[in-house]
Design a protein around this nucleic acid. Structure first.
Lengths: 101, 101
DNA sequence: ATCAAATTTCGACGCATCTCGTAGGATGGG
DNA sequence: CCCATCCTACGAGATGCGTCGAAATTTGAT
């Protein structure tokens, strides 16, 4: 893959973001990334899924505008687009991350 | 139907709420209900769907814990569970409703 | 150049979901 | 009691989604 496509802030749509967050696996990824502001490789997470499934979820989050993904060596470093999401939907991310269940 | 089942506050799960909000039609319903604190019949909304499809969406929102539904005559009055959602996920509803797109 | 590690792509499989039409129940008015 | 209105239940069709395995790709190290 040459370049990873990310939506600009003004291209992010709330329905896509909500759909991206609605999956249990992706929600776990987002929670983990929220605790790693510097970014991290999602492949290091213990998610109980195969690598190909992880690729699918990371792409879903990226294309929805929830995370940034940049190559680093053979890995991909992901991190939350907290600034963009907070600007577009103030309180949404906070509310989701604060969820007791 | 005898009684409409609603999850108690502590039974509401974030994944269900996000899934319920992730559908365009349901998001429109939630936006409309947000402007009618006194509640309203969703059948009055111009959503471009059939009655049976509306029933499906209203049930999805109800079972996820997003709305209350109570019978009134031949209609069902729906209203947002804003207090419960704000208590569980402070900021989430605000962020969703503030969404420009 | 060769090899190993991380990730992606592709095809496929179930399962869920959104949609509708039709039929049926519940409520209120006459 | 009859009927109109609102909503629900059921079945069905089309689509979408999460998952996997196998093969291919990319990058860095030896």
């Amino acid at each position: 893959m040459t370049v990873l496509a990310h939506p600009a802030r003004d291209e992010i749509r709330i329905a896509d973001v909500l759909h991206a967050l609605a999956d249990p696996v992706r929600l776990r990824i987002v929670r983990e990334l929220a605790t790693h502001a510097e970014g991290m490789s999602c492949g290091l997470l213990e998610l109980g899924i195969t690598a190909s499934t992880l690729t699918h979820h990371v792409r879903t989050l990226r294309e929805a505008g929830v995370i940034w993904v940049r190559p680093k060596g053979t890995s991909r470093i992901s991190h939350l687009r907290r600034d963009d999401l907070d600007a577009l939907y103030p309180g949404l991310l906070t509310g989701v991350l604060a969820a007791p269940r």
